[in-house]
Each structure stands twice: as C-alpha cells, then as structure tokens.
Computed example of a mutant assay.
Amino acid sequence: MLRKGLLLISILCLASCTVRTNLGGYVKSQAQTEARSQSVEVYGANEIFSYNTRFLGQVESDFCQNERFAELPSKSQLQRTLKAKAQKLGGNGIVYGQCKTGRFYTGCDKYMSCEGSVYFIEF
C-alpha cells in the first residue's frame, strides 16, 4: 500500500513538472498592451487640431474569427490595442477612425477591424 502511494505521488510530481503552457506569455502580452495604452489619450477629429501636434501615422488592429459560434472581441479591446500601437510609434494621442465588421472576409467567418491616427502632442 505504501509503495502504491509513493508511486502515485512520484507520477503526479513528474507530470506536474512536464506540463507547459503559454498562459504566461499571454498574460505578459496583455499587461504590456494595457500599460502602453494608459499613456495615450483619445481625442476627437476636430479637437486634435487645437493642440500643437505632429502626425506620426496610422495604426490598425484587426481580428479574424474562424469558430462559427465564438464571439468577436469588443470594440474597446481593439481600441486598447490601437492605443498600445500608438505608444510604440511614439505617440501620446490618438484619433479613432472607423471600426468595421464583416462575415466571410479573407478566410474569416467573422472579421473586425479598427483604425486610428496617431499624434505626438506637445504641451
């Protein structure tokens, strides 16, 4: 009985050592996106021109869903990714453009795309 118990404990210990997951990478990526997006402010299309700005470029974020009954991410999730990309370009301001959704687009069952214009604002 004792041998069986030790064998079971040994197998469980070995099994727990060999399980690998990408959860750590996912959590790290989400944390970086959240941290980067915090330093970028959102402005309206007319409002941005009341500041001393320099245009840095366009950013786009998209999502392809191939599972028929799965949900698309929220618009705010894609916009948070846009803010993180804006920060990577050196921007501290963004003007959101349009978000588009569609079905059966470029190999996706469902598709969503958002865009934005990135600015550096001097205060």
Rank of each mutant, 00 (worst) to 15 (best):
S37Q: 02
T33M: 12
A35K: 08
V40H: 05
A15E: 00
R80A: 10
S50I: 12
N66M: 09
F123D: 10
R80K: 15
F120A: 10
V40L: 10
S61E: 15
S74P: 05
F104T: 03
L89G: 07
Y111Q: 01
Y111G: 01
V118C: 04
M1G: 12
N92M: 07
Q98I: 09
I94F: 06
K83Q: 14
L2P: 00
S74T: 15
L78Q: 04
S117F: 06
G5H: 05
G90P: 07
Y43W: 10
I94S: 06
F69H: 06
L89V: 04
C114W: 06
I9Y: 09
V40T: 03
M112Y: 05
T101Y: 02
F55W: 09
E60R: 14
T81H: 08
A15V: 09
D62S: 15
A45V: 13
R36D: 07
N52A: 06
F104P: 01
S61Q: 14
G25L: 11
N22C: 06
Q98S: 13
S117K: 14
K83C: 09
A84D: 01
L6P: 01
E60Y: 09
V42T: 14
K100F: 11
L78V: 02
Y105A: 00
Y26G: 00
L12N: 08
G107Y: 04
Y105P: 00
A70F: 11
N46H: 15
R3V: 12
T101S: 13
Y105K: 07
S37G: 09
K28C: 00
T101G: 04
S37V: 03
L23F: 13
K85F: 08
Y96D: 05
